[in-house]
């Protein structure tokens, strides 16, 4: 483990229920983390750019991004993140119920760091979230904060 500093994860998902389940799953992971939640793409970009009410928002170490959302969807958010030199190094995990080949291909084309199909049951979700957490905060080396 690299540091005991609180790891911040940004969860972008419009479904209240899915947010609840993902939070629950994150709660069950071993690593300490704090999670910020936004419900659409516009809020996500405001959060990441520390605009408006997000002026004091932390820079997340990892983004969990849903694809299908109103107003600004995950594909647009992904595009904007990866075009922004300040944001593009934050790993983005696309976490969606979609299993469509076109969504997978499109996500990687837009430089998603990985695409994970969200399991439909809680048990599966807990396992997947645990693995995401383990991998990104236990295995990989992330760039250090500026």
């Amino acid at each position: 483990m690299k540091s005991m500093a609180l790891i911040n994860i940004l969860l972008v998902d419009d479904s209240e229920d899915d947010v609840e389940f993902t939070l629950k799953a994150l709660e069950k992971t071993k690593l300490a983390n704090s999670v910020s939640v936004v419900n659409d793409g516009i809020e996500a970009m405001e959060f990441l750019r520390k605009e408006g009410k997000y002026a004091t928002a932390p820079t997340p170490s990892l983004i969990l991004l849903d694809l299908n959302m109103p107003m600004k969807d995950g594909r647009e958010v992904l595009t904007e993140i990866k075009e922004d030199p300040n944001l593009r190094k934050i790993p983005v995990v696309v976490l969606t119920t979609s299993q469509a080949e076109e969504d997978i291909v499109r996500s990687y084309e837009l430089h998603a760091n990985c695409f994970v199909s969200k399991p439909v049951d809680l048990e599966g979700l807990v396992k997947v979230v645990q693995r995401i957490d383990d991998f990104w905060f236990g295995v990989v080396q992330l760039p250090t904060e500026r």
């Binding site: 479904s15 229920d17 609840e20 389940f21 629950k24 119920t97 439909v120 049951d121 809680l122 048990e123 979700l125």
Partner: peptide, 17 residues
């Protein structure tokens, strides 16, 4: 496929929680 199954999944997950 999508809209009907989603609430169903939620019910099932909340039952567990």
């Amino acid at each position: 496929a999508h809209d009907l199954q989603e609430p169903l999944r939620s019910v099932s997950n909340y039952l567990q929680l």
